Structure formats: C-alpha cells, structure tokens
Amino acid sequence: MIDSIFTAMSGLEGHQKGLKVISNNVANMNTAGFKASVVDFADVFTGAGSERRREATGSGVDVSRTRLDLRDGDRQDTGRDLDVALEGRGFFVLQDEEGRLRYSRAGGFEFNDDGRLVGRLHGLKVMGRDGAGRLEPIELTGLRGNPPKATRRVEFKGSLYSTDDAHTIDALTIYDSTGAAHTLKLELTKKAATGTGSNVVTWGVKVLEGINELGSGEFSFIGSIASPFGSSIKLLLPLSNTAPAEVEFVLGPDVRGDASSTTSTLALAQQDGYAPGDISALAFNEKGQLTVTYSNGQSATGSTLALAEFASDEQVQAVGDGLLEARLGIAPTLREAGADLKVRSKTLELSNVNLTQEFSTLILMQRGYQASSQVLTTANEMLQQLFELKGRR
C-alpha cells in the first residue's frame, strides 16, 4: 500500500506537469513563432534480473521528457517591411550578447539605433552570411545612403516632324558629379533639306542653362529614320557652379521624322544621373537578401539571412522568448533560402498551438489527475484500516 501511495503521487505530479505544459501552450497561442510542447509519459519499472522481472511491478509514471512540436504555424500578412516568415524546415539564426547562437521562427525584425538588425521583442542580433558563408550580423554599414551619379547620357522619345520649323524642350533636368540638379533647355531648329532628293533633314540643337548657351550640335534624319551619324550629340557642358561635364544627347530607337503632323513631340525619355538618396524602404526578398530602396529611385542589396536546419526535432530545446538552442554538441546546417525553404516578406508565422488538440489533452490530464487522486485516497483509507486492525489486537 505504501508503494501505491508513491505510485499515485507520481501520477499526480505527472498530470500536474502535463497541465502546466498545456497552460503554457494555450497562453502562447498568439505568440508569433511559438512552438508548442508535448509531454511524453513513460512508465517506471523496478526490479532487475530475469527471475525478478516477472514479479516486479510498475512504480508510477515518468514525465521528465518534454519535446517540442516544430510543425509550421499559420502565416499572417502584417504589411511591415521587415517582418519575414519561413516556409519549410529551418530557423532564423540570432546571437545574444554573450555570443551564443539562438534559433527562432519568429521573424519580427527591426533596425536599432546602431543600424543593426535585431529581433523586435528580445533585441538579439539577426545573423546573415557573408560572401564566404561566414556568419555576421546584418547591418546597414555602407547602405545608409546612395551616392550621386553624374548624368552622362540623355535619351529622347517622340518625333521631330519635317513639316515643323522649330521645337523646344523645356525643364530638362540633369545632375552633376555632386548630385546637384541643373535645368536645361534644348532649342531645335530645322535646317534646309539636303542630299539626293532632298531626303536628309537636319535639326540644329542648342543647349542652354538659363540664358547661357552651353553647346550646340545637330540631329539628322534620312527620310523618317534618324541618320546613323546624326542620332547623337556629345557635348562638354560648362554647367554652373561645377566642373564641365561631358553629356551625350541621343535620339531613342523609336524617334522618327515623319511628315504626318506639324507639331513635334520630341521629349525626354530618360537620363542616367541622379541625386544623393536616403533610405526610403527596407525589406527582404524571396532569397532572404536585404533590399534597400532610396529616395532617388535607386536600390541596393545587403546581407542575406542565415538559416539553420536541424536533422531532427530532438536536437533543439526551448530557452524562452520564442528562442531555441541546440542541444549540447549539436551543430545545425547553415544555409540560405531555396526551393525547399522560402522566405515570405511582410509576413509572420503564428503559433502552431492547436486549441482543439490542447483542450482534448486537457480533459485527459484532468481525468488522469482525478484517477490518481482517487487511488491515493483509497490507498490511504486501506492503510488506516490496517492500523485500526493492528490496534485491536
């Protein structure tokens, strides 16, 4: 009967631990990236040797083993640029202040004041991989701004009609080497047709900044097609307040010199310069690369998210804050996103807690606790009766 009491006590403690695990799972049902835990019940058997083993009885239940359920949770769109979720088997890699690596499926990240990518809740550094595959913190070093680029090529679209006499392109903006903008005006004047059959039409071009003429040249057409030798003008422009800049003005491939209208439509198609740019957006692409968009329309890529993959669920254990650590002596495989492990931007993985399953297990734990309690009560009553019988002798 004494053994029965201790066996029943192990049942009470085991189901109490099971209840604690369930309550923790349910409490974290809205914790991003949370992985539910499952208690494994095992019987405790006493006795050794083949002869005694046939007579030995169980000694209760062992619930010392708790494992993680690492199945994927549902994903939810958040609209936040630095929220990322994984689709497939793997974890984000983070590093704490002591240099220890931690792993998580919670991809709610942000850049701190030092320009370092960290977990939004715990502040741990998010790790990426350099060109040699080594782990390094993801930072904005070298990406905080985009340097200017001087305009070297200006391309036009539209048409210069042969029945028109003059055309002006106003407010054409180009940039010098410091990123300063310069507003130019192009004045085009048709010259007399020359060549066999008078099919060559030439347009004189003047480039002005304000009232200052910076340079001039000619565009020419053979019929309606730009002449191979007259489709571009390369000029050294003495722009104001800066060093002279060499700029090529080019007729785009679709520019024509048709006579079907009296109004020319030649206009700027594109130019390759731009001013300095500040960061306007940060996000991760499907390869896990940090992409930076700047206010000047340019973009750049930074580090790539490092991802960890373990051979089995038993190789990791929870340490709190939605973080996991590798069990002693186990190292994961470090990799990048691929066909089997995808990065979803502006998305978070939710908890994988299944409330229906948790409530079903809760009922079983309650019944097990009640049954163990009843066994303990019965064993206690039998023991009291035994003492009463002994006292009557």
Rank of each mutant, 00 (worst) to 15 (best):
A8D: 08
A8T: 09
A8Q: 10
M9D: 13
L19I: 12
V21W: 06
I22W: 02
N24F: 14
V39I: 13
A42P: 11
T46H: 03
G47C: 04
E51Y: 15
R52Q: 14
R53H: 07
E55L: 11
A56Y: 07
G60T: 12
G60E: 08
V61N: 06
V63K: 02
R65L: 14
L70H: 13
R71G: 14
G73C: 12
G79L: 12
R89W: 02
L94N: 01
D96M: 05
D96L: 03
L101C: 06
F109M: 06
F109H: 02
L121M: 05
G123V: 00
G123R: 01
R129M: 06
A132F: 10
G133P: 01
L135S: 00
P137C: 03
L143P: 04
R144K: 15
R152Q: 09
K157T: 15
D176G: 01
T178E: 12
K185A: 10
L186T: 00
T189Q: 10
K190F: 00
K191W: 07
A192F: 08
G195M: 15
K206D: 03
V207G: 01
N212P: 10
L214H: 07
P228M: 10
F229M: 15
G230R: 04
I233M: 06
L237G: 04
T242M: 12
V250Y: 03
A259D: 14
T263C: 08
L266G: 00
A267M: 04
L268P: 05
S280F: 06
E286V: 11
K287F: 05
G288T: 02
Q289A: 09
S295T: 03
S295L: 02
N296Y: 10
S299D: 08
L328P: 12
G329C: 10
L334W: 01
K342A: 14
K342G: 08
Q357N: 10
E358F: 15
F359M: 08
L362V: 08
R367S: 08
S373M: 15
M382H: 02
F387I: 15
E388L: 13
E388M: 12
R392S: 14
R393P: 07
